[in-house]
């Protein structure tokens, strides 16, 4: 019972912290972010396992974590507002060539981040060639170029 409660609590804590840390975290992941991720994983492991290193405990925890994940994926399909709450919605950062500065500021994204995505996806040279830019729910930035740049 203990393992299931621990697993569920850690899942919930991680879900809340990752959600409120914002999508920027993965959108502009740096090597340090990956190091941070490893540290978080190590810290979480201690809290998950406690002093029980048995295979039974590991199996119960893994099944619990995956079970919650599968369960939540169904809940998100059945109750759309929970999906919005947990995953959010895409955010328009550039619309018809117009930069939404407030959205950029709130999402902690710079023009340079948009340009990186634009260069990588379409070889775009300047913002003038960007028609739309969308911050996706998976933390990626999608760039839709103006027709002539495509």
């Amino acid at each position: 019972m203990d393992s299931v409660i621990r697993g569920a609590m850690i899942y919930l804590i991680m879900l809340v912290i990752l959600r409120i840390s914002g999508r920027r975290t993965m959108a502009q992941a740096t090597p340090f972010d990956f190091v941070l991720l490893l540290i978080v994983a190590e810290t979480t492991q201690q809290a998950l396992l406690g002093d029980d290193f048995s295979m039974t405990n590991a199996a119960v925890l893994i099944v619990t974590l995956f079970g919650i994940d599968i369960g939540l994926s169904y809940v998100k399909r059945w109750v759309p507002w929970i999906g919005d709450l947990l995953d959010g919605r895409p955010t328009l950062l550039v619309c018809n060539g117009e930069i939404d500065k407030r959205a950029l500021r709130k999402a902690r994204i710079d023009i340079s981040d948009l340009l990186v995505a634009a260069r990588k996806q379409h070889g775009i040279e300047s913002m003038a060639q960007v028609k739309h830019a969308v911050l996706e729910t998976d933390s990626g930035i999608s760039i839709i170029p103006v027709k002539s740049a495509a």
Partner: peptide, 27 residues
């Protein structure tokens, strides 16, 4: 940018996003 953008089929909701940004900062 609350209105749907012509030609761009994206499920954005600016009101929801503004709410989220507020609660994100509360977090």
């Amino acid at each position: 940018m609350n209105e749907p953008v012509e030609g761009l089929q994206v499920d954005a909701d600016r009101r929801l996003q503004e709410k989220f940004w507020f609660w994100e900062r509360v977090g």
